[in-house]
Amino acid sequence: MLFEALPEISEKELEHFFQIMLTKYGEDFRGYAPASLKRRLGTVLKRYGLPNMQTLNQRLLTQPEYYERFISEITVSTTELFRDPSAWVALKNQLVPLFASFPQVHIWHVGCSTGEEVLSVAILLQEMGLYDRTQIYATDIDRSALEQAQKATYPLRHRELYEKNLKAVLPNVPFSKYAWEEQGNLVFSPSLLRGVRFLRHNVVTESTFGKFEIILCRNLLIYLTPSLQDQVVTKLIRALQAGGIFMIGTKESLFWCQAAQQLIPLNEVERIYQKKP
């Protein structure tokens, strides 16, 4: 029988971890929701066969080369093409009415991870005839996830799910138009990324860059405490053009965020909002 027992992590060890991350690497983990952060740290310890948190702290302190790998482990990369299809249908229905007359549309995909949802946006824009007027900035804290995103290559086992999701969002678009099998992988058309710039960026600690007509930030806020959610959302809404679209995960909420008063819901169930003009 398989049991996934995770090592316990004390408050003191966690405090020490926060200090190392902040002072040595400039990353602030203090605002991460404790329950899932502790669980993820426990998973990292188990994966590397480290006996306790103290050992991990020591490693982070003395081996900077370990840091990128650690960030990659600690960030959650769960994503898929058109995850929550009904949310993407709702976005699709808003795109043309809102942006058809725009000469240029700037999109910021915050926490893009391995890029499946960047491809989702790209496919939507392509099918709506908006792609060539669009510039997409896709950012994440995890460099290795960004590298994978740039390759637009995924394990073949995802094919069935992605194909099903695409069909739910764009029933008339054949999957083979945008993705195919290549050397045992699922490869997406490189042309989908022609208007995408991938950047390493930490939305918690770094400032924003420019103004956007659309900001997508799905299933990143869930890892933050309410007060840090408030800070990040405030920052993102400031970077959103008046009338622009803000889309979060379908189980994420803005009820801790003061700045959300500047938003009106376009689709409350799918968590798609518009910044008041």
């Binding site: 398989l2 996934e4 669980r39 959650v76 299933n219 869930i222 994420e252």
Partner: peptide, 20 residues
């Protein structure tokens, strides 16, 4: 989603890998 409780008395959700 995983459902977790926090000490402060609210839920957190996560999309971490499935467990079991």
């Amino acid at each position: 989603y995983h459902l977790l409780v926090e000490r402060e008395g609210y839920f957190s959700l996560s999309v971490d890998e499935p467990v079991n």
